[in-house]
Design a protein around this nucleic acid. Structure first.
Lengths: 147, 147
DNA sequence: AGCAATTATATTGTGCGCAATTTGATGTCA
DNA sequence: TGACATCAAATTGCGCACAATATAATTGCT
């Protein structure tokens, strides 16, 4: 017979699992808000960046999201096909693909403005609690990436 | 010209993105520890449950992980093929598939015991900070699932 | 006993996410 | 100018994650 399970190996004691599980919970919670817009959750993240600044390259989207072209290229093609954006080669440097929002893509921003408040509510946090938790998790992410 | 980007739609202000991004950072940080064992990160989570208690059904693995058979069945088949576990029908109720660790699967637990301390170190947190953050994220996950 | 509802798992199809490689364009330097 | 390194995207292959459906065993009802 082996030893009893050491507590450091219990699933519920793992920070990584709490984070992993919360990620899926977020994706599910966003779904009813994003489905009417025709967006998936990762596509919504791309839209957030493009609403901030249009005409980014694939790398300029991937850097903040920490996603590479293997993920972004097919995702952007689906979004292009769905009419949210266009993909065209930069005229100065043909290695670069520039992403521009369509009128439809731009217009969704106003609708999307209501989403963050709904998610704040669903999270059960207040604004200060959300900010604090967000910053702490971001710090852990940064530490893990640096290690 | 449209308005400047409203702060509630900035990527870096999103709790969901901090969590999403930390999940990927965790998976990357675990990789060098899990690769020598031959496990992926989701497979490691399954092992944590089986080290706690062997002979679970697919549902008994999926409930705590919040994963369904569409995810677990192929994952468990890969783990079976790799020699970590066996999958066999319950004799009393043939609807149920029971998962048992092989000797090899069991033996990995001792090696794995070193991983949580390494990850704690990589996270830049102390034990109290980790517990606190873990519990707060778990609460948000629960709130989102309930909403 | 026999049929319907329920339950557990498996299957199918779509969309990430990432490692590794490929393709094509740009920059550099002899 | 011409070979060579570098760079940006795209492609390929594999492993999750989940909705929807299918399959098969068990339970419940009459």
């Amino acid at each position: 017979m082996t030893d009893a399970c050491p507590p450091e190996l219990k699933l519920d004691n793992q920070l990584c699992f709490a984070v992993y599980s919360a990620t899926h919970a977020f994706a599910q919670a966003y779904k009813p808000h994003l489905e009417p817009l025709g967006l998936t959750y990762p596509q919504y993240l791309v839209m957030l960046l493009l609403w901030e600044r249009d005409g980014r390259s694939v790398n300029e989207l991937g850097a903040p999201l920490r996603l590479d072209s293997g993920t972004l290229t097919p995702l952007l093609k689906r979004m292009e096909k769905a009419g949210f954006l266009t993909r065209q080669r930069d005229e100065k440097d043909e290695r670069v693909t520039r992403i521009h929002l369509t009128a439809h893509g731009k217009s969704l921003r106003e609708t999307a403005r209501a989403i963050p408040a709904a998610m704040l509510c669903a999270s059960g946090l207040d604004v200060a609690g959300l900010s604090d938790l967000r910053d702490r998790i971001a710090e852990v992410g940064d530490a893990l990436r640096q290690a």
